[in-house]
């Protein structure tokens, strides 16, 4: 019993150690995409086509792509992390930097959509989270499960968040839960963005905010409309929209 009490006290002290100061550090997330699963959801696909794709490509899986979430003070920046290609071949990535000020609740995103660059300046998006009764451990943190929906892309999104990190943010611009989101799962397995390393030991984190963001300035509503139009048009033409746009 005494052991348990000591254990509890240690947990408390540890958690206070984190909470007692401003969170400053970097979380590396790995983002994996299951193309077979995404393709299987497209309304024009027949079961035979789905099976054929799974048969041919189902055994191939990529290593995913790394993203970093930098935290300092009330601000966070989410963008590409280090992705060393083993083949030594470089592809140009789309513009993708999400800057969040959690104090003023402002978002400033540099994004690219169908080859065009946009700067989104708006309030941070508000998500309606349902809290579920599941827990699991991610990188040493015990996480709870929450659920929200993306009506634009028709996705059910599950977030695993921990109250062990006192920063109410997460990857891909998700936020609003009482803790840090360490994993995002889109539509069961279509996309899994999972923390692979969490480092709060860094002395001075530099937020990689671009000095100048190029692109047309718009807000989330306009951006979401563009996404929706493209998805609708692609599906009407029986093409997978997600080859072209971020899932």
């Amino acid at each position: 019993m005494l052991n348990k009490c000591i254990y509890i006290i240690i947990i408390i002290l540890l958690s206070m150690d984190i909470n007692a100061q401003d969170v400053e550090g970097t979380i590396v997330y790995n983002r994996k995409t299951d193309w077979i699963s995404i393709m299987s959801r497209l309304p024009f696909m027949t079961q035979e086509e789905i099976d054929r794709n799974r048969l041919t490509w189902g055994k191939r899986s990529g290593r995913g792509r790394n993203y970093n979430l930098y935290l300092k003070g009330n601000k966070s920046v989410y963008t590409y992390g280090e992705n060393e290609s083993e083949s030594g071949w470089s592809w140009k990535s789309e513009e993708y930097v999400l800057v969040r000020d959690h104090k003023s609740k402002k978002a400033t995103d540099a994004r690219e959509f169908l080859g065009k660059k946009y700067v989104i300046k708006d309030e941070m998006p508000k998500y309606k989270w349902k809290i579920l009764n599941e827990i699991k451990e991610i990188e040493g943190y015990l996480c709870m499960k929450a659920e929200t929906k993306d009506p634009i892309k028709g996705q059910t999104i599950h977030a695993w968040f921990t109250d062990g990190i006192n920063f109410f943010g997460g990857p891909e611009g998700f936020s609003g839960l009482p803790g840090m989101i360490l994993e995002i799962v889109v539509n069961e397995s279509d996309v899994v963005i999972s923390a692979t390393s969490i480092d709060f030991e860094q002395a001075d984190v530099k937020l990689p905010i671009p000095k100048k963001m190029k692109g047309k300035e718009i807000d989330f509503a306009v951006f979401d409309n563009k996404v929706k139009d493209f998805i609708d048009q692609s599906i009407e033409g029986e093409r997978n929209p997600f080859w072209r746009i971020r899932y």
């Binding site: 309606k128 989270w129 349902k130 809290i131 579920l132 929450a146 109250d163 839960l177 009482p178």
Partner: peptide, 8 residues
């Protein structure tokens, strides 16, 4: 189960 608020 939709979250309305949280505290510690």
């Amino acid at each position: 189960s939709t979250m309305v608020d949280f505290t510690r």
